[in-house]
C-alpha cells in the first residue's frame, strides 16, 4: 500500500543474505463485463514487465481477468488519513446531492 512520503522509510538492504528489495508495485485488475479496475494487492519486481508477469501469475490465477495495471507504489499520492474527516467533509453534509432530497407530487406512479 502507498505510504505518504514522510512515512516511507529509507530502503535498507540486509546484505548478509543478499536480498535486495525490488521496488513495490500496486496491482489493479479488471474482470469481465465492463467492471472497473480494482486494487487487488501488491508485489515486488525489478521492472514493469516483471511486475506485470508476476501480477498475472499471482493475482490472475483463476480468471476471469481481462486487464491488469501495475503502478509503482511510490507514484501513488493518497489522501491524508489523519485528516480524513475535514478532507471528505465537503461531500458529507450535502443531502441535496441525493435524489431522496426532492419531492414529487403524491400519486405519481413511476418516476
Amino acid at each position: 500500500m502507498p505510504k505518504s512520503t514522510s512515512e516511507r522509510r529509507p530502503r535498507t538492504l540486509p546484505e548478509e543474505n543478499g536480498a535486495s528489495q525490488w521496488p513495490l508495485w500496486e496491482v489493479f485488475s479488471q474482470g469481465e463485463g465492463g467492471a472497473p479496475h480494482e486494487h487487488v494487492g501488491s508485489l515486488h519486481a525489478a521492472d514493469a514487465e516483471m511486475a506485470l508477469q508476476n501480477a498475472r501469475d499471482v493475482y490472475a490465477r483463476r480468471g476471469p481477468v481481462v486487464s491488469l495495471w501495475v503502478v509503482p507504489s511510490a507514484a501513488i499520492t493518497a489522501s491524508p488519513s489523519d485528516e480524513a474527516g475535514p478532507f471528505f467533509d465537503p461531500g458529507a453534509d450535502k443531502i441535496y446531492r441525493h435524489p431522496q432530497f426532492y419531492k414529487v407530487p403524491r400519486g405519481l406512479k413511476g418516476f
Binding site: R9, R11, T12, N17
Partner: peptide, 16 residues
C-alpha cells in the same frame, strides 16, 4: 508478506 509490509517493515527483513 505484502500485507505485513504495510506496517512499515521490509520483506527482505522478514525473509532474513
Amino acid at each position: 508478506y505484502c500485507g505485513t509490509e504495510t506496517l512499515g517493515v521490509d520483506r527482505a527483513e522478514l525473509v532474513d
